[in-house]
Design a protein around this nucleic acid. Sequence first.
DNA 1: TATTGTTATACTCTATAACTATA
DNA 2: TATAGTTATAGAGTATAACAATA
Lengths: 151, 151
Amino acid sequence: MTEAEGEIRLGLLDGAVGYLLRRAQLVVFEDFARRFAALDLTPAQFSTLLAIRENPGRRQSDIAAALGVQRPNFVALMDNLERRGLAARVRSGEDRRANALELTKGGAALLDRALAAQGEQEAAIRAAIGETGRRELIATLARLSQLSNQT
Amino acid sequence: MTEAEGEIRLGLLDGAVGYLLRRAQLVVFEDFARRFAALDLTPAQFSTLLAIRENPGRRQSDIAAALGVQRPNFVALMDNLERRGLAARVRSGEDRRANALELTKGGAALLDRALAAQGEQEAAIRAAIGETGRRELIATLARLSQLSNQT
DNA sequence: TATTGTTATACTCTATAACTATA
DNA sequence: TATAGTTATAGAGTATAACAATA
């Protein structure tokens, strides 16, 4: 070791919402990955299973759009869930171009375990920033997502 | 158009900090990209220029680590800044393995313009969630980043 | 003609192993 | 031996164009 030279200062970055948002999101996603490793579910797979359960029989494109995933990229994701027997694509009767998405029994069971793990993450966040801080954070993030319709 | 079938419900995702964090971060980064398009700076490039200005002469690895960038990935980033004449790598006299990073005059000038653009983004965020909300958000995100040292 | 799901593809980010030159 | 910077590379995530089947 030659020298330590002291800490690196980040300047205005400490007060930049975009920078802090990125860093916090990385930390929370790493925590998610640890908790979901045993379930072998990524955030995208987890949110897909949940969206299917909340909207059974809806078309693949609608679910993808609601989650902010491009349709082409959603194909491999569904391939994976289907191969593992967690979700199923059923050819729609009304529109034979479309796939109606359903959860299998195994998918519903895994989702229950995933929701428990997610609840534990939320509890850890509550322990870190308090329940009031958590509720305010959720409300603020929801409002922030409407930034797109601005100057 | 066959049918609309109504909105997709996201279920508990509306109250999941991780999910909202990801969506908000995407929105804020898209806004950033619009504001910084004329300057041709990515978030990583902007934060690098700022970190160099705040810590002139520090080694490349230290700056990369402080920004959470892997050393190998920082090489191409610096190549770009150097090629554009915004920053310079100076062989350190103390340790001839190391690069001391400096901002050029052009880099300092571009950074000034970038900081103005960043200030405008912060103002837009203030308009969306209020100054109180913004200060609370910054404090909460900073505390959230310490989630790693938990159960 | 337009839309759904799909394939192919490309580009960015990120992560790891291994080299070189110095220490 | 160990470290700083680098190269090569591989894996995710994300974006667009174009095709077949169906509307």
